[in-house]
Amino acid sequence: MPWNTAGQYRRRVPLIETRALQKRYDNAVTALADLTVTIEPGVVGLVGVNGAGKSTLIKLALGLLEPTGGSIRVLDLDPVRDAEKVRARVGYMPEHDCLPPDMIAAEFVTHMARISGLPAAMARDRASETLRHVGLYEERYRRIGGYSTGMKQRVKLAQALVHDPELLLLDEPTNGLDPAGRRAMLDLVHRIGTEFGISVVVCSHLLGEIERICTSLVAIDAGRLLRSATLDSMTQVRDLVVVEVDEDVNKLAAALTATGLDVRRHEDRALLVQADSDAVYDTIRDTVADLDLALHRVERQRHQVADLFRDLPRTEEETRVVNATA
């Protein structure tokens, strides 16, 4: 990815830096336990299952919560002591609904821009601009209550973006959207991270969904860091293609292995083939054609966060099966 550098972002300081960060709520629930991670500029996916501590980390970064242990720095500032400075430079899109239904979208975004410190006239201009960027220009004088879920999500994004932050914190931005809406939202987030040059930390419990727009991923589980890496290194070994055929799976596995591909058994009649380049798809097609097999599907493996928990490569048993047939 050509834009996979921090150079275009205005600052090179880490977006978020935590050291042994801990957050325990009053009712003794531990949301974060000993989290140490450095999030560098770029489009960063913060992944983890629901309850892993993603939202808590975001709220700690905004200074809305205070850590019960360890430290956190945002844009090299302390979010509790320098809360005002941090919040002026950060945009936040919460996970849940947070819009007043009886306000007009343009007025609402203008109002939020002013609360972020923009003078009235500038706030109005930037509100229109931002609503245009999120694709709500025509509908901006309608009441938010009459908007669809997708439009509401765009207004939420617009209010986070209106004051031109250096860092955008997006908590599950695709929540409640249909597949097309999800794709549109992710494309928008991608554009913000690349064309607009604003660093983005986007939370999701669906790794497969955000991996294509992120430059790096941070996976947390039960309040601890699971993995943190650039996307390349994390998904390199995970770029897998599922090939399902009607019969003779073993024959296909042998033939594909013979062409030098890394092949593993998957489910009942399917194989997992490691795809390092697009040429692999051609090889699969040709091999299937040569063997005269009925091809059911060829698709890229969708990762779930759960996949990150499993150790790679796959179990030895799967490997043995493939080897035995070879």
Binding site: L62, L64, A88, Y92, P94, I115, S116
Partner: peptide, 9 residues
């Protein structure tokens, strides 16, 4: 909406 206010200066 309070959440949005409190995440601002």
């Amino acid at each position: 909406l309070l959440q949005l206010y409190l995440s601002r200066p």
